[in-house]
Simulated assay, not measured.
Amino acid sequence: MKEKKNTSILFIRVHWIYLSLFFLIFSISFFINFLDLKERLNSSIITATSEKVHTNFFLRLMSTEIGPLKSSIKEEEEPSISQVVFHTFINIWPEDIRTFLGREIPGFSTFNTEIAIAGLGTDLTTLPIESAPPLEMLLKEKEQAEKDQDQPKGTEEKGASPIPKTGKDVAYIYHSHSWEAFLPLLPGKKTANEAVSLNESKNIIAVGKKLKEELMKRGIGANHSTSNVTEELKKKNWNYNYSYALSRETVKEVMAQNSSINYLIDIHRDSQPKKLTTTMINGKPFARLFFIVGKENINYERNLALAKELNKKLEEKYPGISRGVFIKTKDDGNGVYNQDLSSQSMLLEFGGVENNNTELDHSIEAFAEIFSEYYWDAEEVSGNEG
């Protein structure tokens, strides 16, 4: 009788522990989100933990209040409370070797990138590579770059543009890393880390300019930033890590001045070699592109859906043009990429360091074609077609 009583007491204590833990987590989540803090409980660590914790753990928590749930609990091995707490705070999972090495080996955290949709040849060995900009090199190059520039620095391209069918700008094209350039346009440069330039005709700004032109031809109004991010960072005494904070200021300012802008397109280029970033489609060379979606913001699901839909349409018409859709958290990138500012945001990477203008132009035209079809279809469905 005494043994039975002790068992009952132990049973009651365990259930009270489950219940207390549940309310503790709920209370912390409620207050953090209620206070509208910038950092909410959407950490990739918490998400990863909840995904790996056995279902029975949550069922047991809820069954303390909802009796019928006990019948749903399968008698299988499940982690203890101590294991769950350990995994959450240490972020190490014995079955995944990457969790042991991710913070110890430089660059290994790249493998935390989630592949939402894998393009042809895409796997953990061909993930995108982002190279840090050698700011000193860029600043030394400034004088020569300004002499070579085809357009005045930091201004919009001049000349008559077609009047968009939209009657207003609905897309904003910008570059958080405006220094990213292409080796074929930089004589004497041979390595990925050297593929940087302040010259707007040789860096990623040229891709944005071309995309704006192609969208305008298809009746879609677009605003394009040619801001020299390197110089702006220098003015604020900010380093490379603040590049998204800088572009965020610009995006918010433009959106405040132009409420019709819904689509945000941050354009980059990858650092992978040509064999991974180039493909032939119908006898024409294309610089392959891909989408990056930040997971650490409230618009994650909708932005992911947008990227998947555009990726699907691109692959249907231009098989092999996309390397896929990638999801990044703060463990392996910025995690937000200003995508919290609009539920129609995308970070789009065109080609890599070894792609040339012909390959890039073909891909820009293809994307503009697919995006315009998507845009006008969406407008027709919503009844807003101009």
Score class of each variant (00 low, 15 high):
165 K>V: 13
104 E>K: 15
304 L>H: 01
70 K>W: 14
89 F>V: 15
197 S>E: 00
291 F>G: 04
13 R>K: 13
190 K>N: 14
8 S>N: 12
308 K>Y: 05
335 G>P: 01
292 I>H: 14
159 G>E: 04
173 I>S: 07
107 G>Y: 10
26 F>R: 10
42 N>F: 11
76 E>V: 15
207 V>Y: 08
142 K>H: 03
151 Q>R: 15
124 L>Y: 14
147 K>Y: 13
341 L>T: 07
304 L>S: 02
103 R>E: 11
348 L>H: 03
120 L>F: 13
241 N>P: 09
216 M>C: 04
74 K>T: 13
185 L>I: 05
196 V>I: 00
267 I>T: 03
122 T>C: 08
252 K>N: 10
325 V>L: 00
155 T>V: 04
239 N>W: 04
240 Y>G: 03
109 S>D: 15
119 G>S: 11
337 Y>Q: 00
363 S>R: 02
382 S>V: 06
74 K>G: 09
21 L>I: 15
265 I>V: 15
369 E>M: 04
40 R>H: 13
74 K>P: 10
111 F>G: 08
317 K>N: 12
166 T>R: 09
245 A>S: 10
288 R>F: 05
366 A>H: 03
47 T>Q: 08
44 S>I: 14
202 K>R: 11
170 V>N: 07
269 R>E: 12
68 P>E: 00
83 Q>M: 04
193 N>M: 05
